[in-house]
């Protein structure tokens, strides 16, 4: 009883340091991605220097095998990582949440079947599902990469949504809504989604990071956005042959990816405490 009392006045927590660091790291990528739409240091396709030059004031990350500015390409990579991340989470979220809600409301039989299917899908590595989707379409493109990763993520989102929704459906306010005459779709929109949203949002942020990694992996395998799209994975693959002579080529895109994913994970952790008042009260 006293525990309940304790939670009342502590109120909402202030955004934590974790959240701020996450915001800065992710914000950096968003800023760069937006910037590249209107301006880049060099023409990404232009041969503006010697081949495989070391980093200098003129070329911060050196140049690639064709003499193109490497930093410009890494900046453009932000754009691709963010577009794929957002697109994949949008697709995965839409499909996953719908399926999860459906399973939560379904009859015992259908729910068991859906749950088993999701468990099997989750057992497949994200990359394998993505490769199958790309293989099924005629050629690899930015869109197939987004679709593939989105589909792979949807199983994870669906399973989480199903569990969260089932937990909410047991609560008395759902019974109260039914006896107030609210229809099942109405209950989903007014009660279930708002109550599972904070947890889902945190999960979406984490999925965003996974999507960025999956995109780099696909591109590395040549199954992602085709050149001249400068995906980090593609840059890594190109740098593979020259990794001993020009290690910056492998190091720089890798670092960009790590900064983005770490930033997103910190952001998700910070959001978790911030978005859910019942959790922050326990600090």
């Amino acid at each position: 009883m006293s525990a309940i009392e304790l939670t009342e006045d502590t109120g909402r927590s202030r955004p934590s340091l974790t959240l701020w660091v996450g915001v800065v790291l992710v914000g950096l990528h968003v800023f760069i991605a937006l910037l590249t739409v209107v301006w880049t240091p060099y023409d990404p396709l232009g041969m503006t220097g010697g081949r495989l030059e070391a980093p200098s004031w003129a070329h911060w990350a050196g140049t690639d095998r064709l003499g193109r500015d490497f930093f410009t390409q890494i900046m453009l990579g932000s754009q691709i990582a963010l577009v794929v991340g957002a697109g994949a989470v949008a697709i995965g979220g839409a499909i996953g949440v719908s399926l999860g809600i459906l399973a939560a409301f379904a009859s015992r039989w259908l729910d068991d079947a859906l749950a088993a299917t999701l468990d099997i899908l989750i057992a497949f590595p994200t990359l394998l599902i993505a490769m199958l989707v790309v293989a099924a379409s005629d050629e690899a493109s930015l869109f197939t990469a987004i679709l593939a990763i989105g589909l792979a993520l949807s199983a994870i989102v669906a399973r989480l949504t199903r569990i969260l929704a089932k937990r909410v459906l047991l609560l008395d306010y759902i019974t109260a809504a039914r006896t107030s005459g609210t229809s099942w779709p109405g209950i989903v929109v007014t009660h279930v989604l708002p109550n599972i949203w904070p947890t889902l949002a945190v999960n979406f942020a984490l999925q965003f990071g996974l999507a960025a990694i999956a995109e780099a992996s696909l591109s590395y395998l040549g199954l992602g956005a085709p050149p001249p799209n400068a995906s980090w994975g593609h840059l890594l693959q190109e740098a593979q042959g020259t990794v001993y002579t020009a290690p910056i080529g492998a190091f720089a895109p890798g670092l960009a990816l790590v900064i983005l994913v770490v930033g997103i994970n910190l952001l998700a952790d910070g959001l978790r405490d911030f978005a859910d008042p019942t959790r922050s009260a326990r600090r």
Partner: peptide, 17 residues
């Protein structure tokens, strides 16, 4: 015509409404 009040006032109200 038939409305209800439930036992647990902590779970019968949607915390986000």
């Amino acid at each position: 015509q038939v409305q209800a009040v439930f036992q647990d006032p902590y779970s019968s109200l949607d915390p986000r409404q």
